[in-house]
């Protein structure tokens, strides 16, 4: 079940990855192969198996509402590609 070039571009955009036309063609075939591979899961009979969102038999892993000190501001901003004062600086966000 091959992906269309448009679907490849859509996914690239969601992932914030820029692709050339050549790359679209290349990933179109590669991604289609991966999807086909996973398609084999459809063959498993799940008729009487309740759906599950988790593979571990755990639930209610929670913490009490106790605040703890945060990390130092300089550490927080250490990886900022751009910084202005004590803020992260990013490109203008257009609504």
């Amino acid at each position: 079940m091959p992906l269309t070039p448009e679907e490849v571009r859509h996914n690239a955009r969601l992932a914030r990855v820029g692709l050339s036309d050549d790359e679209v063609a290349r990933f179109q075939s590669q991604l289609s192969l991966i999807l086909d591979y996973f398609q084999r899961l459809q063959e498993v009979d799940t008729e009487n198996v309740p759906p599950t969102a988790h593979t571990l038999a755990m639930h209610n892993v929670m913490r009490d509402d106790e605040p703890h000190p945060s990390i130092d501001k300089e550490e927080v901003l250490a990886n900022a590609p751009q910084r202005e004062g004590d803020h992260f600086r990013v490109r203008a966000i257009l609504e």
């Binding site: 004062g85 803020h87 992260f88 490109r91 203008a92």
Partner: peptide, 8 residues
């Protein structure tokens, strides 16, 4: 110049 600042 327009840009945005983030406070987390």
């Amino acid at each position: 110049e327009t840009y945005s600042l983030i406070d987390v």
